[in-house]
């Protein structure tokens, strides 16, 4: 039995993509205004905002248009937990695109976070409880003959 499969051919046809990544059907613009207000709030009161883009009526080109307009910033991180989550700072400081996927790569949610650091990037205090124990275990495994904690 042949277990081979044909390789993914490259995208078969050329497309004339309009500059900016796609057509804007109107809703993306409203989001940008909302982002602007959120940024002002962040600056004046420090209050963070999250916008769930997945729950908005985007047309086929809206999201591409929006993300192209926001651009790409300096920070990009991927979190592997229940599938990949990508965190991308946009070209606008303080505006983050957080893209949650499940293990099969299907998108669970797409958030715009207007904040200094997205919460999901920070080390979780709840897990700090087990940090020392985990390290001890690993130390033990790494030390021939076993080892006791230094303290």
């Amino acid at each position: 039995m042949s277990a081979t499969m044909s390789g993914l051919p490259s995208i078969p046809v050329q497309v004339e993509t309009p500059a900016g990544g796609g057509a804007c059907h109107g809703n993306a613009l409203a989001i940008l205004h909302e982002v602007r207000h959120a940024l002002e709030r962040l600056i004046s009161t420090g209050e963070a905002t999250r916008i769930d883009l997945h729950a908005l009526p985007f047309g086929a080109g809206d999201e591409a248009w929006l993300t192209a307009l926001l651009g790409t910033g300096e920070v990009r991180a991927t979190i592997e937990a229940l599938g990949p989550t990508s965190v991308q700072e946009t070209a606008i400081p303080g505006v983050w695109l957080v893209d949650y996927h499940n293990a099969e790569g299907q998108r669970l949610a797409l958030h715009l976070e207007i904040t200094c650091i997205p919460g999901i990037l920070r080390t979780q205090c709840r897990e700090l409880d087990t940090a020392v124990a985990t390290l001890d275990t690993r130390l033990g495994a790494a030390t021939p003959g076993g080892s006791r904690p230094l303290s």
């Binding site: 044909s6 993914l8 004339e16 796609g22 047309g59 086929a60």
Partner: peptide
């Protein structure tokens, strides 16, 4: 329409290919 976001375009065809694969 390969030039439309609202029709079967290259992006959607590529998705089809990936599902078939």
């Amino acid at each position: 329409d390969l030039n439309s976001d609202s029709a079967i375009n290259a992006k959607k065809l590529a998705e089809v290919q990936s599902v078939i694969a």
